[in-house]
């Protein structure tokens, strides 16, 4: 029982990372009806932004590894990723707007390959050690919990889930309460009508990419705190899993992306812990196939028939 709960905790912490990345997939899909396959590599850029900014921040501000250090580096990586995401949209996707969706999709794969191989060229191909922003340790649980006190919950796991939930809350506020968010929702509902109502298409799409990429950047930092080895190809697997999470939760749905991410994380931990890691990817991608077959709109998505 304790082992099961431990696997659940492990899975939730990993799922928090997937959830943050999945949000970016789902947001871009919401406004553009297109899967940005370079999104996983933005996650990688976030990790490298932290890799370079982390030591500088620690040196300049003089703070040691602590929560403060994380909170200082996090916005830097998020900003760097937001700029990268917006630049990619401006340079690669905007010129193709109105072209067949397949063209943009293939471009996205091209951008992804560019970031992966360019990353190996610029950052080096060897895995790098992520600077210690916060000293990770197992939390001491109160003995009053009885046998539950033997569970290991690490500081980084709490941090990942906490920050992921905070960012989700913030995102919901932006999308639900602000005029920009209103414009995003309008665009996702009906782009033509939204434009007729005066929504600035270019600006909103750029902002959507910026927001989604910032979340992936945050995920990059959080993942690297938990697993402090980063390399230019780290975005491939994480991106694919997050994509499955977004589809599982219902692509286009913010809550769905988070639920999907957490579910995939837990599913992976349970499969690895109780079956075999060999089955982990087949089962995760099997879920993708099942969802597409039986509930294409995902768990929380609404099915929208294509109007002909």
């Amino acid at each position: 029982m304790i082992e099961f709960l431990q696997q659940l905790i492990n899975g939730l912490a990993q799922g928090g990372i997937y959830a943050l990345i999945a949000l970016g997939y789902t947001m871009v899909y919401g406004v553009l009806r297109f899967i940005n396959f370079a999104h996983g590599d933005i996650f990688m850029l976030g990790a490298f932004a932290g890799f370079y900014a982390g030591p500088a921040v620690l040196r300049i501000t003089g703070v040691g590894p602590s929560l403060a250090a994380v909170l200082l580096v996090l916005p830097i990586a998020m900003l760097a990723c937001a700029l990268a995401g917006m630049a990619i949209e401006r340079l690669c996707y905007r010129p193709l707007r109105g072209r067949p969706r397949l063209t943009v999709l293939i471009t996205a794969i091209g951008v992804s390959l560019l970031l992966e191989n360019g990353g190996q060229f610029v950052f080096g191909a060897n895995p790098r050690s992520f600077p210690e922003l916060i000293t990770d340790r197992a939390l001491v649980l109160p003995p009053a919990l009885g046998s539950l006190a033997t569970l290991t919950i690490t500081l980084s796991q709490v941090l990942v889930l906490g920050i992921a939930l905070l960012l989700l809350g913030g995102l919901r506020q932006v999308v639900g309460r602000t005029r920009t968010g209103l414009a995003m929702r309008a665009l996702s509902l009906n782009p033509t009508a939204a434009q007729l109502m005066g929504v600035d298409l270019d600006r909103i799409i750029a902002l959507t990419f910026g927001l989604g990429s910032a979340l992936a950047g945050a995920a990059g930092i959080l993942a690297s705190i938990q697993q402090p080895s980063i390399d230019p190809l780290m975005g491939i697997a994480a991106g694919l899993k997050a994509f499955v999470a977004a589809v599982l939760g219902g692509i286009g749905s913010l809550t769905g992306a988070v639920v999907g991410g957490l579910l995939i994380g837990v599913l992976e931990a349970l499969v690895v812990g109780y079956l075999s890691p060999t089955y982990r990817d087949p089962i995760v991608f099997g879920v993708l196939i099942l969802i597409l077959l039986f509930r294409p709109a995902g768990l929380l998505g609404r099915f929208q028939p294509e109007k002909v």
Partner: peptide, 17 residues
Amino acid sequence: DQKYSSGDKEFRAQITS
């Protein structure tokens, strides 16, 4: 007897077991 695949970064499930 636990297993993982090259490229994995998360091993907590195996280690817990």
